[in-house]
Design a protein around this nucleic acid. Structure first.
Lengths: 228, 228
DNA sequence: CACACAGTATGGTCAGACCATACAGGACCG
DNA sequence: CGGTCCTGTATGGTCTGACCATACTGTGTG
């Protein structure tokens, strides 16, 4: 007996596979609706509970959202929110002492340098960056400041043109919001951060990838002085 | 009416929050057991279905696994598998045409360069890298080759010492396994890949971060010639 | 034509049952 | 004494059927 363990597939996993197959075959994309839970249950010959558990998984993975009621907007609708899912994932694993802050900061630095380099190469999205900068100037609390700071760095990632990396960036920021607020409060003075942001923006406007990368590196060193 | 929408929290979300709080307060870590579903349902005053949906979410996020039966190993056990969760997430979003291959490859390159640079700085984990190299030499099919190739690159990420980045790497590889096999088959000859691996390993042994980064960059260019 | 109201499809929740699994512990032999 | 088998039991997995809240649909009524 060579450990014949088919690892019993649970029915909700089967439903998941069927849904995945169906989505791929029918070429469904964001905005399209899935059949109703009861209908799916009948079609697949399983109970509604199993269908619901599969739905919960898809929802957790940022693939569908569910609306109650009736009409075109009701039911399970396909979406594409990898960042939502990533945020929950990171937040939980951070809270569960699975990861050190250092590991997260380093990851952020890696992503941000990459994004800055590529954003400078394309020179796109500078208006969103400038808007975030203005938002930070108008901020009257650490929370507000961090909100616009997040917008700035996410805009940077968006400008890189890589949606996967942008999703990583957004998720990291979302998962770390509380820590970011703490960091800003500890720092007190945000003028040094502002200077960093302006330097980044200038480098991107100038189309200088290497300067953009350096600017981001220095900026993060300013934001987390204890780790550098 | 400023759109007063508390966005009705569903009971399974409440269960999720309670579980999260309890895990944090009791200082539970990987290996510890959660109460049984029926018991949780009674304690929280909700139905077992809601508890199960919450469990499914936690399972999807790589925080718990469930074992049937009885005894110390049965029930919902806390784990820490961000990579598992990430894999499912990436696989789905890739399949749902949400992302271009180019975006994934670029992400991989970013991670891999970072990992190589830092692995070279520490010089750790070279034995795992060497073992993976041998495995690739002994491989007699593209699948086998990719398996050990994946091991090599994951070992590289592990050697960097950053578990979050290592989890990203592992997930990317898992989600892309089929594409990697295709790429190897299309390539036919793997000697160029072997040379790349040896160059990476040598750079890490020599403790030369910059050479390691260059070696990884060239290696990926060899693996995906059409994208460079 | 405008509005109110009943109808209905949707997800959300619950209660209760049964099954398969896998361990715990005793009973029964050797 | 020691193993072996059998029963009990706690666990997750699944199903059924019901009811609720929601939000659109359609009809009827003024």
């Amino acid at each position: 007996m060579p450990d014949t363990r088919p690892k019993r597939t649970r029915t909700f996993e089967d439903v998941l596979a069927q849904l995945e197959r169906r989505i791929a075959e029918d070429g469904l994309t964001a905005g399209d609706r899935l059949p109703a839970e009861r209908q799916l249950a009948e079609e697949l010959g399983v109970s509604r509970s199993s269908v619901r558990e599969a739905m919960r998984v898809l929802e957790t993975l940022g693939v569908v959202t569910s609306q109650v009621g009736r009409g075109p907007d009701a039911g399970a609708v396909l979406v594409s929110r990898p960042d939502h899912a990533l945020t929950g994932l990171l937040r939980l694993h951070l809270g569960l002492t699975g990861l050190e802050p250092r590991e997260v900061i380093d990851t952020r630095l890696m992503i941000e340098r990459w994004a800055a380099t590529h954003a400078a190469a394309t020179g796109a999205g500078t208006s969103a960056l400038a808007a975030a900068l203005e938002g930070m100037d108008a901020a009257r609390s650490a929370e507000e400041f961090v909100e616009h700071d997040t917008a700035f760095h996410c805009a940077l990632a968006d400008a890189s043109g890589n949606r996967l990396i942008a999703a990583f960036m957004r998720s990291l920021r979302d998962a770390m919001r509380v820590y970011a607020v703490e960091a800003v409060e500890r720092l007190g003075d945000t003028t040094v951060l502002r200077a960093g942001h302006e330097r980044i923006l200038a480098a991107i406007r100038a189309g200088d990838p290497e300067e953009a990368s350096r600017a981001v590196t220095d900026h993060l060193a300013d934001a987390y002085p204890s780790l550098f």
